[in-house]
Design a protein around this nucleic acid. Structure first.
Length: 271
DNA sequence: AACACCTCCAACCGCCTGTGC
DNA sequence: AGCACAGGCGGTTGGAGGTGT
């Protein structure tokens, strides 16, 4: 689908926001909320496109934004979540209260990426993400070791979602599901968490959309379409899915919990 | 002091998905 | 079913400030 850029219209301001613009935007949202981002700038009297307003609000002006340096704990969480989720910044941000996907993305590219390259994990033969990708291009891959299994569980154990904020957008609250719906479009060179933990991450890519379609059950569709490689316990998991949906459990957390409870990482259907 | 280079981060851009008609 | 629109995501960029020479 082809669509003109939202800021194409002449007269719309671009570039850094001024204090005055910030004040206008904040006061407008406090008074009226942000029902329609595209209409907001006109109603608020801003010479900005709606997209720019939304970005400014979600990345900078939102009152629950936590500013300042990332703590060691936060960086650790980012590293581990990145190993699991890849470059799905919004999903990672959903588990770091007060942090935005843009901020996390910046931190990753400026600090953590380098750190990971500079300091390989002790005793680990795991390649960097980039290396993993290049290796994957050249073939390879094998069964995960017991140590890798333990690593998976260690990562999963610590994963908890950030508490919901009244200022978070719907997509942030449900980012795991939203993002996972994009799983198929994740760039090959980026979603290689599955290369470090063969099976595990791909399982998440594959599985999450199922839960997003509850109760239509993608699982049903899958089995109807001859999904012979569906995990053997899919029936039970289908029931769990519905239970998860009715309890409002976050999709990604549901799958993480499921994996922890199952204690196994089933063979995956090919994507 | 002046210049070049580097780092960081706010903001932009293009694309994708969901939704309503 | 197809289209248009809105929201959102992730990649990339540009400029300000910091650092090195």
């Amino acid at each position: 689908m082809v669509r003109a850029p939202c800021c194409e219209k002449m007269g719309l301001k671009k570039g850094p926001w001024t204090v005055e613009e910030d004040q206008v935007l904040v006061s407008y949202i406090h008074r009226h909320g942000h029902g329609n981002w595209r209409a907001l700038p006109k109603q608020a009297g801003l010479l900005r496109c709606g997209k720019s307003c939304r970005l400014r609000w979600t990345n900078y002006l939102r009152p629950d934004i936590k500013r300042g340096n990332f703590s060691k704990e936060e960086e650790d969480v980012i590293v581990r979540l990145h190993e699991l989720l890849g470059n799905r910044w919004s999903a990672i941000a959903a588990r770091l209260p007060g942090r935005t996907d843009n901020e996390i993305k910046n931190v990753w590219h400026t600090h953590l990426k380098k750190r990971r390259k500079a300091i390989p994990e002790p005793g680990s033969q795991k390649p960097t993400r980039e290396e993993a990708h290049s290796e994957s291009c050249g073939g390879g891959g094998g069964a995960s070791s017991a140590a890798e299994e333990e690593t998976k569980h260690a990562i999963l154990r610590d994963l908890r979602p950030a508490p919901p904020s009244p200022w978070r957008s719907c997509s942030e609250l449900s980012s795991a599901a939203t993002d996972s719906s994009n799983a198929a479009s994740v760039k090959d060179e980026e979603h290689d968490g599955s290369l470090e933990f063969p099976g595990m991450a791909e399982f998440l890519w594959w599985a999450a959309p199922m839960s997003s379609e509850i109760p239509g059950t993608c699982a049903d569709n899958f089995s109807e379409s001859g999904g012979s490689s569906l995990p053997s316990s899919s029936g039970q998991r289908g029931e769990d899915l519905q239970a998860s949906a009715s309890s409002g459990e976050d999709d990604m957390d549901f799958w993480l919990r499921l994996l922890m409870e199952a204690g196994d990482f089933p063979e995956l259907p090919s994507l």
